[in-house]
């Protein structure tokens, strides 16, 4: 099922990327000689068991860590640090929102660093919060909100940043099932309404298949790409009917098999 031909232009790519931590006998190779091209406009899900280096891979793609060897590039330009074109939603929403800023300030803050005027910052943040359905929580503090709402704030922050690429690291890992379904659909809505290229790292196979236009299975030690699958479910997904489709069930078993190898 590995595909070679690209239908959309490449947004983000990793070539011969290796990453290891430590040196000498303590050296741990997390990722070795990994190739990956994220196509623009796709929702790409990186799925794999825990501890396989998915978060490391995402940090490399975001420019938050630099590869030991190889290169990550965006539209052909090497990435050496965080870039404006990439927004990130982290796994730990409690740790990534500033507890001393109200929701609106949290969402608007990254724009201040970009030199956006105060009135525009506020209106862009309010707009982004409206998209994620939190217009009424603008002047709450993050810790006053539920986990799902906090993660919505983190998504709004990414949205207000207006980056064409959004990277999400286990974004719904610590949320309950209902909230997770709602937020998965929010992600699909962002892709549909704004054409954002989205990369989601997850250990949840169902989530990967449900969200992804493409599922990339990562495994092994050090990690490599085990499989790269195009999901034949179309762009419109529905939590009940999509999950009941034979293609969904078949794909999910296929991925599960590969992960258990």
């Amino acid at each position: 099922m590995t595909r070679e031909t690209l239908t959309s232009p490449v947004a983000l790519s990793a070539t011969h990327v290796s990453k290891s931590f430590g040196s000498g006998p303590d050296r741990v190779d997390v990722i070795e000689d990994l190739h990956l091209s994220i196509r623009s406009g796709d929702v790409t899900c990186l799925v794999g068991p825990s501890g396989v280096g998915k978060t490391t891979l995402l940090r490399l793609l975001a420019g938050l860590a630099s590869p030991t060897s190889g290169q990550v590039s965006m539209d052909g330009v090497p990435i050496t640090g965080a870039v404006e074109q990439i927004a990130v939603v982290f796994q730990d929403y409690r740790g990534s929102l500033m507890p001393w800023m109200k929701v609106l300030q949290n969402v608007a803050f990254p724009l201040e660093g970009r030199g956006v005027s105060k009135s525009e910052r506020t209106s862009r943040a309010a707009e982004a919060l409206a998209v994620v359905g939190l217009s009424d929580k603008i002047s709450s503090y993050p810790w006053q909100l539920s986990g799902g709402m906090q993660q919505r704030v983190a998504i709004a922050r990414a949205l207000a940043y207006e980056s064409p690429i959004l990277l999400m690291d286990e974004p719904f890992g610590s949320l309950d099932a209902q909230t997770r379904f709602e937020l998965e659909d929010l992600v699909l809505q962002l892709r549909r309404d704004f054409g954002i290229t989205i990369v989601v790292v997850t250990h949840d196979i169902d989530e990967a298949v449900y969200l992804g236009d493409r599922v990339v299975v990562v495994g092994g030690r050090p990690s490599r790409i085990v499989d790269d699958i195009d999901v034949p479910l179309g762009r419109e997904r529905d939590q009940i009917t999509t999950r009941a489709e034979p293609a969904f069930i078949q794909l999910r078993s296929h991925v599960l098999n590969e992960i258990q190898l």
Partner: peptide, 15 residues
């Protein structure tokens, strides 16, 4: 300060 706060500041390039 939570490491995530710094990571978010890095990701959003807070000067």
């Amino acid at each position: 300060i939570h490491a995530g706060i710094f990571e978010a500041s890095d990701a959003y390039r807070i000067p």
